[in-house]
């Protein structure tokens, strides 16, 4: 029964994604304002001009479990950030705490340079695996943030409480920090340590806000539809329980 329900939700989501993407392919998406993402968009423009680099941390989410979702969202954002900042004198640096994610980081950055038509400028050592445990990863990423002329730290992926160390080093070096994690502990740490933290599903909106295309904005619409369905189901279930139907 549970697996049938899961299959049903999966098929419904796939159907909605397809339909919404087709219906909205020619329209300009409109989003509510998320201060952190507005700042991120502004930062991309400024980084090319002020001669400093961006550091994109993708966390230590493994691609083999449920944390892979945030890793893929981070990769989608990385692809656009790389494309937009590839002509900068100081190329962006990306760090990952999982080896498989590290490989995809290299591939994604190279694709970003390719899309910008400057593939020859891509330096493989700009995408790095800095450590294989949460704290060793954070230690390696902190080193990049404080020693490589970084203007903005962008953290998108799976981060636990160790995000606080990265936030602290950014604060001390006057580096702008934009952080998003799928982990509750990581989110609360980032909420306390950053100017505008991205909470919950806002992490998955990064691609759409950076202009990744119709599929990303359609994803947001589908998430909203599914969220309303869940709300209605929860309220309906509570009401049914209250009147004694279930």
């Amino acid at each position: 029964m549970t697996s049938l329900l899961a299959l049903g939700i999966l098929l419904l989501t796939a159907f909605l994604l397809l339909v919404v993407a087709l219906l909205t392919r020619n329209s300009t998406p409109r989003f509510r304002e998320i201060p952190a993402l507005t700042r991120l968009v502004r930062t991309l423009g400024l980084s090319v001009e002020d001669g400093k680099r961006l550091h994109i941390s993708l966390g230590h989410g493994s691609l083999l479990d449920e944390r892979g979702g945030s890793a893929f969202a981070g990769l989608a954002a990385l692809r656009i950030i790389t494309e937009k900042t590839s002509v900068s004198d100081m190329p962006s640096v990306a760090s990952a705490g999982d080896p498989a994610l590290g490989l995809l980081t290299q591939d994604t950055m190279q694709a970003g340079y390719q899309a910008a038509g400057v593939e020859e400028l891509y330096v493989p050592t700009t995408s790095r695996v800095t450590g294989l445990t949460p704290f060793s990863y954070a230690a390696g990423a902190m080193h990049i943030a404080s020693n490589e002329n970084v203007s903005t730290n962008i953290m998108i992926g799976h981060f636990g409480p160790e995000a606080g160390l990265l936030a602290d080093i950014s604060d001390r070096d006057y580096v702008t920090l934009i952080g998003a994690s799928d982990n509750l502990a990581g989110q609360s740490v980032l909420y306390a340590s950053t100017q505008d933290a991205l909470i919950g599903e806002e992490l998955f909106a990064t691609g759409a806000y950076l202009g990744a295309g119709t599929s990303h904005s359609a994803s947001l619409t589908v998430q909203d539809i599914l969220r309303w369905l869940i709300i209605i189901t929860l309220l309906g279930g509570a009401a049914a329980k209250f009147v004694g139907v279930i």
């Binding site: 994604l17 979702g69 799928d182 992490l203 994803s219």
Partner: peptide, 8 residues
């Protein structure tokens, strides 16, 4: 929900 849609 975000993970589901991203995965798809």
């Amino acid at each position: 929900l975000g993970t589901l849609v991203t995965g798809l």
